[in-house]
């Protein structure tokens, strides 16, 4: 995830301890980061809490970031791990959450948007997580395997089954 020149400057300052720079850097990528958390946990409140907690963790750990150019990628990993913790916690509290009961409420006039998101949240949790990390975070399978502590073969299986499940829900011609 390439930083602009201004973002790179902010990232270097953040690594040196400038918290204002870190805050501005994260705010500039707020849409992407929020959507990342939201796709994982399925609701606005948990997504915001994940983002807040990940920010706190990042402030403490940023001084160890060796390559400021990788700041957004680095922070996204922290955010996903935090979202994974929240997701696991909620799954143990609310058994039905894993099937996406807390679905987002997309705008009614974006029918295609409704189709995909509604279908996405109906997926089995493991498929949803893997598809998101692959298609939205653009992570390679090896990275997803490491992040979820799951073998690569299993990740590939989830991707295959998740895509098949989406097609079943949406209809076979969704991808054009």
């Amino acid at each position: 995830m390439t930083l602009t020149a201004h973002e790179l400057s902010l990232a270097k300052r953040a690594v040196r301890g400038d918290r204002t720079a870190l805050e501005r850097l994260l705010a500039g990528r707020g849409d992407y980061l929020y959507r990342t958390a939201y796709l994982y946990v399925g609701n606005e409140q948990d997504a915001l809490e994940c983002l807040q907690e990940a920010t706190t963790q990042a402030v403490v750990a940023v001084r160890h970031l060796r390559e400021p150019a990788l700041f957004v990628t680095w922070f996204t990993r922290i955010l996903i791990r935090q979202a994974q913790r929240v997701y696991t916690l909620r799954a143990s509290e609310t058994p039905t959450l894993a099937v996406g009961e807390q679905a987002p409420a997309p705008p009614a006039d974006l029918e295609q948007h409704v189709d995909l998101l509604a279908a996405f949240t109906q997926l089995k949790a493991e498929y949803r997580q893997t598809l998101q990390l692959f298609y939205y975070q653009d992570l390679p399978i090896r990275e997803i395997s490491r992040l979820l502590n799951t073998p690569e073969a299993t990740i590939k299986t989830r991707l295959r089954r998740g895509r098949a499940a989406l097609k079943t829900i949406l209809g076979g011609d969704y991808y054009g």
Partner: peptide, 18 residues
Amino acid sequence: FDQIPVPRAAVAAAITRG
């Protein structure tokens, strides 16, 4: 996914709190 609505004020506030 990029069309998911974002509560920008709340996102900024969450980052600030963090």
